[in-house]
Amino acid sequence: MARLPRPLWPGTGHLDPVLRWLVHDGYGFHQAYFHTGTHVHRRVRDGRAARYTGDGPYALRAADQGMGRALWFVGGTDPDRVAALIESFPEGRRADLYAGVGLAATYAGGADTDELRRLRDRAGRHGPHLAQGSAFGAEARIRAGLLVPHTETATGVLCGTDAETAARASRDLRPETLGAEDPERPWYEVWRARLADEFARREGGGAYS
């Protein structure tokens, strides 16, 4: 979508009802990674994909999750630089950005244990969202049969558990019985919120290392 002329943009209504929001995640990643000055440093929000697909406001949040993934690379995997970039955005966007960062830090790596702890500390109250993204990253690695040591390191710090346990939580909490969808809280967001709440509960019980 980011490369095609708008008349060629596909619709999303025929896609998986839970995962279709990853279209917007990918769009946000592209815009932040390839148009960094506009979308990261000037924090301009590109609402075209949300508008022309008809997916509405949540599409902007999904795009921010993809932007968070890009920020991990824009910031050179340095936790302080990445956190500073996120903190330059309005508060209402930061949870989604941290979720994307958690996924990228877990899937792609680039930080050691001490750096990941700094990232977790800088996330503050957004820690459960960071953990949610990390669990998604672990599940992606495990599902592909590509589990690597840096993924274990990341889930140990960001989720307070090993990669398989984090990935299993992601699988177990995915909505299975889908009814009418709330446009502002689609099933994908229900899934993400369940997972973030689970890690918040574990953190409260001292599960984070």
Results as ranks from 00 to 15, higher is better:
residue 4 L to E: 14
residue 148 V to M: 09
residue 38 T to R: 15
residue 73 F to C: 03
residue 125 R to L: 07
residue 194 R to Y: 07
residue 202 R to N: 04
residue 19 L to M: 13
residue 135 A to V: 01
residue 3 R to C: 05
residue 131 A to S: 15
residue 161 T to C: 14
residue 117 R to L: 14
residue 73 F to E: 10
residue 198 E to T: 04
residue 203 E to S: 10
residue 209 S to I: 00
residue 102 G to M: 07
residue 136 F to I: 05
residue 113 T to L: 11
residue 52 Y to R: 11
residue 207 A to I: 00
residue 44 V to W: 05
residue 42 R to K: 15
residue 67 M to H: 00
residue 51 R to Q: 12
residue 95 A to L: 11
residue 183 P to C: 11
residue 86 I to F: 07
residue 154 A to N: 04
residue 96 D to G: 02
residue 27 Y to Q: 07
residue 197 D to K: 11
residue 53 T to A: 02
residue 47 G to P: 10
residue 52 Y to W: 15
residue 136 F to K: 03
residue 5 P to C: 01
residue 195 L to R: 01
residue 173 L to F: 09
residue 156 G to C: 07
residue 85 L to N: 01
residue 64 D to G: 11
residue 147 L to F: 13
residue 122 R to W: 00
residue 116 L to A: 02
residue 56 G to P: 13
residue 209 S to A: 15
residue 164 E to H: 12
residue 54 G to A: 09
residue 64 D to N: 05
residue 101 V to P: 00
residue 24 H to R: 07
residue 102 G to Y: 03
residue 21 W to H: 13
residue 168 R to M: 00
residue 39 H to E: 06
residue 146 L to K: 13
residue 121 D to T: 12
residue 207 A to M: 12
residue 81 R to C: 03
residue 207 A to P: 00
residue 155 T to E: 00
residue 114 D to E: 14
residue 116 L to G: 00
residue 205 G to I: 02
residue 35 H to Y: 13
residue 11 G to V: 12
residue 122 R to P: 00
residue 117 R to E: 11
residue 124 G to N: 04
residue 110 G to A: 06
residue 128 P to G: 11
residue 196 A to L: 03
residue 114 D to N: 05
residue 40 V to I: 15
residue 139 E to H: 13
residue 152 E to W: 06
residue 47 G to N: 06
residue 1 M to E: 11
residue 198 E to P: 01
residue 74 V to E: 11
residue 33 Y to V: 08
residue 167 A to W: 10
residue 139 E to Q: 13
residue 8 L to D: 14
residue 199 F to P: 08
residue 13 G to E: 15
residue 80 D to L: 14
residue 191 W to P: 12
residue 66 G to I: 08
residue 206 G to K: 04
residue 5 P to H: 02
residue 81 R to Y: 03
residue 116 L to K: 00
residue 84 A to R: 14
residue 105 A to L: 10
residue 68 G to H: 06
residue 83 A to G: 07
residue 8 L to P: 03
residue 147 L to P: 07
residue 201 R to V: 03
residue 31 Q to M: 14
residue 50 A to Y: 02
residue 68 G to W: 08
residue 106 T to A: 04
residue 52 Y to Q: 14
residue 12 T to S: 08
residue 112 D to M: 00
residue 163 A to S: 12
residue 15 L to V: 08
residue 208 Y to Q: 06
residue 51 R to V: 07
residue 47 G to E: 15
residue 199 F to G: 01
residue 17 P to S: 06
residue 13 G to H: 06
residue 72 W to G: 03
residue 85 L to K: 01
residue 9 W to S: 01
residue 97 L to I: 02
residue 83 A to N: 05
residue 45 R to E: 14
residue 91 E to G: 08
residue 124 G to V: 04
residue 150 H to C: 08
residue 188 Y to D: 10
residue 142 I to P: 06
residue 52 Y to F: 15
residue 153 T to I: 02
residue 6 R to G: 01
residue 147 L to E: 02
residue 7 P to H: 02
residue 5 P to W: 00
residue 60 L to F: 02
residue 101 V to A: 01
residue 109 G to M: 03
residue 3 R to P: 04
residue 11 G to C: 06
residue 158 L to I: 12
residue 112 D to P: 10
residue 105 A to D: 00
residue 20 R to P: 00
residue 39 H to L: 09
residue 23 V to G: 04
residue 41 H to K: 06
residue 3 R to T: 13
residue 92 G to F: 07
residue 20 R to Q: 10
residue 172 D to H: 11
residue 183 P to I: 11
residue 205 G to E: 15
residue 78 D to G: 03
residue 6 R to T: 09
residue 134 S to A: 15
residue 102 G to P: 02
residue 24 H to E: 03
residue 14 H to D: 14
residue 71 L to N: 08
residue 193 A to F: 08
